[in-house]
């Protein structure tokens, strides 16, 4: 009994924080099911009838073009990041050479610099390469800025793999590239999952490069699309809330099904900060 009473402040604190973190989501989803008129008269009450009209409207808009762009950019970037960072991590973790440490530090620095410092030259470079205003322009910077964290995750993992693995493979006459892809890479699955989730979240939500490197609506990603909607239909609050809800859905679904991995993935990048 005494123990139960002692816990009351804990529960109160837990619930206050629950309201703090959860209510904005409730407001967003709740509003998305309302009509515009209903929102005007009672903006924060529960909807009288749940209507999916706002979501249906999204199907008629450009929303899914943005959505598709985001999917394409994110998938290609994440795959490239996995391949490039896993490969680059192998010599850094397993081989001794003079430039090992300097190269690792070079990648580490990338985590600390403000990405905006690179914005203008990348904008210029994109124009010179003829990639300006296309979703392909985004992949280079996304991959480049994802490399540092991913390389740290992979090298940490690779260092823990036993040396005997490589040695026995080498004895069997296995070349370094086959050794890496056939033997080591499959063992890196947990690290790959972490890298994939971490970068999926960041790239899916990335805004400033998409803002600067694309221009026409048909080439924007979701964050750009959301802002366009907001600019165009700012009066139709329920419509915008529907767009916000739908845009947040993929990440929330991933989170729902792989909660531990997501949490682990997001904290992994900072282990060595």
């Amino acid at each position: 009994m005494l123990k139960g009473i002692k816990k009351i402040p804990l529960y109160m604190l837990a619930i206050i924080l629950l309201v703090f973190t959860g209510v904005p989501f409730l407001i967003m989803v709740n509003t998305s099911f309302k009509g515009q008129l209903e929102f005007m008269t009672s903006p924060w009450s529960l909807p009288k009838t749940f209507s999916f009209d706002n979501y249906l409207l999204l199907f008629e808009s450009d929303f899914f073009r943005y959505f598709l762009n985001s999917v394409i950019v994110t998938v290609i970037s994440v795959v490239l990041v996995i391949l490039l960072s896993a490969m680059a991590s192998y010599p850094l973790a397993k081989m001794k050479f003079k430039l090992n440490k300097p190269l690792f530090i070079l990648f580490l620095i990338g985590m600390m610099i403000p990405i905006h410092t690179t914005l203008i030259p990348i904008f210029r470079l994109t124009q010179q390469l003829g990639l300006y205003d296309s979703i392909w322009a985004l992949i280079g910077p996304y991959v480049a800025f994802a490399l540092p964290v991913s390389i740290i995750i992979y090298t940490q993992f690779l260092k823990e793999l036993p040396k005997e693995l490589e040695e026995s493979a080498k004895m069997d006459g296995c070349g370094p590239f086959r050794l890496f892809w056939k033997i080591l890479f499959p063992l890196l699955k947990p690290a790959t999952a972490t890298v994939a989730i971490y970068n999926f979240i960041h790239i899916w939500n990335e805004f400033i490069f998409a803002l600067v490197l694309t221009n026409s609506p048909k080439n924007g990603t979701l964050p750009i699309g959301l802002r366009e909607f907001y600019g165009e239909f700012s009066v139709n609050v329920p419509g915008i809330m529907a767009a916000l809800s739908l845009a947040s859905l993929p990440l929330l679904l991933v989170y729902l099904f792989a909660q531990e991995r997501v949490v682990q993935g997001l904290s992994a990048g900072s282990v060595k900060g």
């Binding site: 407001i27 967003m28 939500n205 907001y230 990440l251 929330l252």
Partner: peptide, 15 residues
Amino acid sequence: YFMPFLMSTVAIGIL
């Protein structure tokens, strides 16, 4: 508790 961090910053801003 963890959900806010998953939402895109643009979406959070508008919300």
